[in-house]
Nucleic acid binder design. Structure first.
Length: 435
RNA sequence: GGAGGGGUGGGAGAGUGGCUAAAUCCAGCAGACUGUAAAUCUGCCCGUCUCAGACGUACGGUGGUUCGAAUCCACCCCCCUCCA
């Protein structure tokens, strides 16, 4: 695989600070859950430390968006994205909160799992309750009681997932609402405007996300459309955004290496604060996705955060982090949680299976999460079989905690320069092949 | 005792002569889910086997009509409602 110049590890002082921050975080969570302090957690609270320091030194929060690296380990990096609403530790997993809620979760519990940032969705929120309404109500953060960073998707994914309800043109996408059949139009400019109305800290350009397989010619014209939309998005963003907000461009090009390169070249000219890799995990399979990342990530701007959209399962994330990705989002922990699938350190299990009916053990007593620690598999099994509301709530909670621990472990491993050892352990525990 | 209604696969419940190992729902057993139209969707769900097929048994019981019966006839058993 091709590589850019490796970045040197730096920030030993930060490494020490993490231990201190970890204690703060553990203490904070224990107090929330009424647990005694003292047990070591795998995560560290960079966020809490940064915010505290900033308040002490400047008396107010920064209004700038920035990304800084603390350490690298091969292509993998760990660092911090600063936003006016707080820091995002990378590699980061961002729970998906499409319609103004991380489904089945209280916002404060999402936070307690260790999430620094969550997703919102332009298409869904513009239909219901409406972007202007959210703005009148004080913005999405206030509306949903999540005062921390929010990244909004542009509606680009819905261009694909709601293909039967839309018409695509140069100007934008005409949608027929899946809710009431009414007609709506989403242009790159309108998407940015909506994301500004929502108050998103990180916004995504409108793009077209084609499924793989796709013919190369078709993939190229789609990629070029997305690139033109990136430019229009940037212009609209410069006009409508407030200080500290960021717009990310999206690399497309399906699984064609030269198209990915061309997409990157076009986006780099825009000099955006971050870039996403889009159009993956859309049917190509893990091995092919990794192959595309190998051919793509090294050409992306190493000074900017790299966001792999819509990915993925734990093994996908581990493999992508090893290839230099900094940000992830995926419905897997939340949707699967609602459907009875629990992610564990030994791989995924289906709690609805009869084998758990008499299993008194919790999903994971080493996780600092009530859903993982304080309820037996037998109880969770029963809740699912009985169709109780608590069932999807608890399993979603556990899955998010499990994902956040994975991210914390990855950050710690990179910081310590022992990512390959961590990956070997991950493979051994889950039996997953990470190409 | 009289009148009427009914007995179908674990449960509910379609089915009145062949297209019926028997609709559908529930329960049960599994699987899927990757920028969320998802508390959703899919498969299996009588038994046996050389299991994407074959065979066997099956619609209260027994006997009959018929080329062919869950479906028609006779008798028996059981359940429900109303009247005495």
């Amino acid at each position: 695989m091709t590589q850019t110049r490796p970045l040197q590890r730096r920030g030993l002082a930060l490494g020490r600070g993490e231990d201190f921050a970890q204690q703060i975080r553990v203490r904070a969570e224990r107090s929330v859950y009424g647990m005694p302090c003292g047990k070591a957690a795998s995560d560290f609270n960079f966020f809490a430390r940064r915010a505290k320091t900033r308040r002490m030194t400047t008396g107010r929060r920064s209004t700038a968006f920035s990304f800084s690296l603390n350490a690298t380990d091969g292509p993998a990096r760990t660092g911090v994205i600063e936003t006016p609403r707080g820091a995002i530790r990378t590699p980061a997993f961002m729970p998906v909160g499409t319609a103004g809620t991380v489904k089945a979760m209280f916002a404060e519990d999402v936070r307690a799992t260790g999430a620094d940032v969550i997703l919102g969705n332009t298409y869904h929120l513009m239909l219901r309750p409406g972007a202007e309404r959210v703005a009148r109500l004080g913005g999405l953060h206030r509306f949903m009681n999540w005062p921390h960073p929010i990244l909004t998707d542009s509606g680009g994914f819905q261009v694909m997932s709601l293909a039967s309800l839309r018409k695509l043109a140069e100007e934008g996408v005409a949608f027929r609402s899946h809710i009431d059949g009414s007609n709506h139009f989403l242009s790159p400019e309108r998407s940015v405007e909506i994301q500004c109305l929502l108050g998103a800290d990180i916004q995504m350009q409108l793009d077209e996300c084609p499924a793989i397989p796709i013919a190369q010619e078709e993939a190229r014209s789609s990629m070029l459309l997305s690139a033109r939309w990136a430019l229009r998005s940037k212009r609209a963003f410069e006009e409508k955004s407030t200080p500290g907000q960021a717009l990310f461009g999206i690399v497309q090009g399906a699984n064609f290496d030269d198209l990915r390169r061309e997409s990157i070249d076009r986006l780099l000219e825009l000099d955006l604060p971050g870039y996403a890799v889009g159009g993956l995990a859309v049917g190509e399979g893990r091995e092919e996705m990794f192959r595309v990342l190998d051919a793509t990530v090294p050409h992306m701007d190493a000074r900017k955060p790299r966001y792999l959209m819509g990915v993925g399962k734990p093994a996908d994330i581990v493999g992508a982090v090893a290839r230099g990705i900094d940000m992830f989002d995926c419905v897997a922990p939340t949707r699967s949680g609602r459907h009875g699938q629990a992610f564990t350190q030994g791989g995924a299990i289906n709690i609805k299976n009869a084998q758990y009916a008499d299993d008194e053990s919790p999903l994971d007593e080493t996780l600092d999460c009530p859903a993982s620690r304080d309820y037996s598999k037998a109880y969770l099994h029963h809740l699912f079989k009985a169709g109780e509301y608590l069932a999807p709530m608890l399993l979603t909670w556990h899955n998010l905690a499990c994902y956040q621990r994975l991210m914390a472990d990855l950050r710690a491993a990179i910081a310590a320069g022992r990512l390959s050892a961590f990956i070997a352990g991950f493979k051994a525990a889950t039996g997953e092949e990470i190409v």
